[in-house]
Amino acid sequence: MQIRSGTIDDLFPIVALHVNSWRSAFAGIMPDSFLSGPVADDRLALWRERLASPVRGSGLFLAHDGDGGLLGFAYLLPAPDGRILLDNLHVRPGNTGSGIGTELLRQGLAWAVDEHPAKEVYLEVLKANTRAIAFYERHGARRTDERIARFQQGFELPHFEYAWPMD
């Protein structure tokens, strides 16, 4: 496995993996009407904007297999409150539990320390996504808040905020 920075040329593989990851991880959590329909267009619009006009100070890391296939990705960016948001960490369905997510998380956290010293890294995770919660807790994240996520598609879901303590 190789990890490298992402570029606009990675748009379609990122979107495909992101959509498949959401459909797998959020089945029974997010509305089926969203996951089976507009999620693909939604993720395409998001990643097209992110990759065409990168946020200053953001980092996108892609894990590839030996043949160049995308295995997973992590995306971090500065948040308005001065912290660093781990906004995405996805592993191709069928490859979870193989260490890919751990390596992407390590890469992202190390990058944040180098690029944004003394800035706390945090993430938001749906309350019903217990597998992801267990993963983040195993990797040292601590729950710091609980809120309701409001999706522009018209639904709401409870989520937790997790952060890594600044040592």
Rank of each mutant, 00 (worst) to 15 (best):
R23N: 15
A25K: 03
A27W: 02
G28R: 00
I29W: 00
F34H: 14
L35K: 10
L35P: 13
S36F: 09
S36W: 04
P38Q: 12
V39D: 08
A40V: 09
A40D: 13
D41E: 15
D42W: 10
L44P: 06
L46Q: 10
L46F: 07
W47S: 05
R48C: 00
R48G: 06
E49K: 14
R50M: 10
L51A: 12
S53L: 05
V55L: 12
R56A: 13
G57A: 01
S58H: 04
S58P: 02
G59F: 10
A63W: 07
H64C: 15
H64R: 07
H64N: 04
G66C: 01
G69M: 05
L71I: 01
G72F: 07
A74E: 10
A74G: 08
L77W: 01
L77F: 04
P78E: 02
P78C: 02
P78M: 03
A79N: 11
P80R: 09
D81F: 11
D81G: 10
G82I: 05
L85Q: 11
L85F: 13
N88R: 09
N88Y: 03
L89H: 05
H90W: 13
H90T: 02
P93L: 11
G94A: 04
G94Q: 05
G94R: 07
T96Q: 15
S98H: 13
I100M: 06
G101W: 05
G101A: 08
E103H: 13
Q107L: 05
G108S: 14
L109A: 05
L109K: 05
A112C: 12
A112D: 02
D114C: 03
D114F: 03
D114W: 04
E115M: 13
P117M: 12
E120L: 13
E120K: 14
V121C: 11
L126Y: 12
L126D: 00
A128G: 03
N129Y: 06
T130P: 03
A132S: 08
A132C: 03
A134I: 01
H139M: 02
A141H: 02
T144K: 07
D145G: 12
E146G: 00
R147C: 11
R150Y: 06
F151M: 15
G154T: 00
L157C: 12
L157E: 15
